[in-house]
């Protein structure tokens, strides 16, 4: 994991890193020190630690993000119901207040830790780290981290997970990816949820939603499903199966956010 470049180095600014002169003096005698690390250096450091922790226990960690009410918890309930005997699942729930979501998950018979963030609009790697102390990773295969319902802030924080899943319910509008490009550009999977309502809506076009994702140069799969219609969930379960297998083969899986930054970092440390 990138500690020095912070994974935000792209070919466009790479010259800043490779330039000589770490410490340059300005004309008036003040020292200017070049740093070039992510503003979220501390968070990224903790996220790397969390990821190592997951990997040591061979646990796949998935970050679920969406606006409030787009069906993250309902999707988890349906997923646990269908795959609970195949995978040992644990859940970390993030909300500003209440234990409600964790209680819904526990009612499905799987462990859930609730993080109440108070006023914070996102989860960060430190909060997740604390929550992991309450989960026995040795007895789990998949940990779902249900982020705070918010299409803005959670996108900026690496939690140490392996992939970003963004939910967009069909009642929200098919142009959400164009309105929230940071979130949808960083998604490894986009789920268009509540598809059972599509027949009542004349203004949500799943193809348009998909096109908006592509316009962010994102090739991630875009699946349409309803947690209330088990027959629509198959492609989602297939994606999960493939991710679990991919992670077992190669633990270096990380959200596809900053591949160029990662590449540059590994080049500079090799």
């Amino acid at each position: 994991m990138c500690e020095t470049c912070g994974c935000t180095i792209t070919p466009g600014n790479a010259h800043l890193v490779t330039d000589e002169g770490h410490l340059a003096h300005t004309k008036d005698g003040k020292a200017s020190i070049e740093v070039l690390s992510s503003l979220l250096h501390e968070n990224n450091h903790m996220a790397a630690h969390n990821r190592e922790h997951f990997n040591r226990h061979n646990v796949l960690a998935l970050n679920l993000m969406s606006s409030p009410g787009s069906g993250k918890t309902a999707l988890l309930e349906a997923t646990i119901k269908a795959l609970g005997s195949k995978y040992r699942i644990g859940v970390v729930e993030g909300d500003l207040e209440t234990e409600n979501d964790a209680q819904r998950i526990r009612a499905q018979g799987v462990p859930a830790v609730q993080i109440t963030t108070g006023q914070a609009c996102h989860l960060d790697a430190h909060m997740v780290h604390d929550a992991l102390h309450e989960l026995d990773l040795g007895s789990l295969d998949i940990v779902f981290i249900e982020n705070v319902g918010n299409l803005v802030c959670p996108a900026s924080f690496d939690l140490g997970h392996h992939a970003n899943i963004t939910l967009l319910s069909v009642t929200e509008g098919d142009d959400k990816p164009a309105k929230y490009p940071v979130m949808f550009r960083g998604s490894d999977l986009v789920l268009l949820t509540k598809s059972d309502l599509l027949e009542y809506l004349d203004d949500f076009d799943t193809q348009k939603a998909k096109n908006h994702v592509r316009h962010l140069a994102n090739a991630a799969p875009v699946l349409t499903l309803s947690s209330r219609r088990e027959e629509t969930l198959k492609p989602w379960f297939n994606w999960l199966d493939a991710m679990v297998k991919a992670h077992q083969k190669n633990q270096n899986i990380a959200p596809t956010m900053q591949p160029d930054g990662m590449a540059l970092h590994s080049a500079s440390t090799s």
Binding site: P11, N13, I33, V35, L36
Partner: peptide
Amino acid sequence: ISGDEMILKSLVL
């Protein structure tokens, strides 16, 4: 190639 930077570039001490 650019546009997603969130970098602490330098400090004047």
